[in-house]
Amino acid sequence: MLTALSTKRLMRELNQLIKNPPSSHVRLLSHETLDKWKIQIIGADETLYADEKYILQFKFPNDYPLESPEVVFVGDCVPVHPHIYSNGHICLSILYQQWSPALTAEAVCISILSMLSSCTQKKPPKRDAIYVKRTKTASPKKTSWRFDDDNV
């Protein structure tokens, strides 16, 4: 059950996203329930991912925004990126330890877009196969992430 705080906050974020989308590269696809959204992001122009369409799935925990949402890429294609595993898990500090309620779903989308934009080489993370085999469809929040690459 979502708490009163999370319900109010999610309603406000949803309204904001529908009324004033941050850019044409971020589009809300669906929100079957208040705590599960799908957002389409389109790679920024003049980057390696220009015009490529990907779907992000947000699952909001009951004590959102105190706890971070679970964000993964879903659908047939997951971007090939050094920080994105082929099961859709994203290695991005703000989704885990560095989360703060000052961030929103919209801000997360923009962060991910900027992560894609600053990529210089499309290649999967190291030991992708091992990681994917071990985690399968488990929540990425169960992984103990280590963030050691500031470049991409």
Binding site: S93, A102, E106
Partner: peptide, 14 residues
């Protein structure tokens, strides 16, 4: 681990 990731500084994009 020392945390220093991509966009380790939480961006305030509001």
């Amino acid at each position: 681990q020392e945390l220093a990731g991509p966009s380790a500084q939480p961006q305030i994009l509001q």
